[in-house]
Amino acid sequence: MKKHEFLTQLSAQLSQLPPEERLELLEDYEAHFAFGRQNGKSEEEIVSELGDPHELAKEALGERFITQEPVYWYHDSSKGQPHSAAPAQRRGRGMTAQVFILIGMFFANIVLGPLMIAFWAVVISIMAAALAGIVSPALLALDMVFHSVSPAKWFASIFMVGFGILLGVGSKGLLKGALLTTRKYLSWNYHLAKGDA
């Protein structure tokens, strides 16, 4: 078989491909012939090295399905209609799986739950500190009723007001973070238990 015959056969077999793809592939083979000739091979030699055009066409046509279906090397093109993606149906998990997941969640939550509580404790204590700073003049005034108060305490209290305000502003972000984390944590639990996580 000569080059022309090889390419004609291949071209005919590849008629299913989109034209530009087919042309590109044929160009590849054409170039292969040119390089082979440059290296002093005869057209017949090159054709025999390339292999059977029918097999090659099968390969070229089969490739397009590989991404959609786990085909090993050969693909029967008659089977190859791209499957319309059926909406994935969620099946409820089995009883055993559900039980084990709940057990797993129980142990995970033994650790995670207190961790969340500790996190909240930190947030709340910072906010309490901020509040205490802000209301410190009032507390000091209360103190004055029962004891004599040194003026230094008044200066400290003025400072505490400023400090409390700053701490309060800073803790706003912290509170937001805590709320978000808690919400995520709860919804994670919910979805995991329900089985659609």
């Binding site: 390339l50 292999g51 097999e55 490739e63």
Partner: peptide
């Protein structure tokens, strides 16, 4: 079969 290379190369490029 050397010819099998070209469909393969096309696939590698596509992927």
């Amino acid at each position: 079969a050397e010819g099998a290379l070209y469909p393969l190369l096309r696939r590698l490029v596509n992927e």
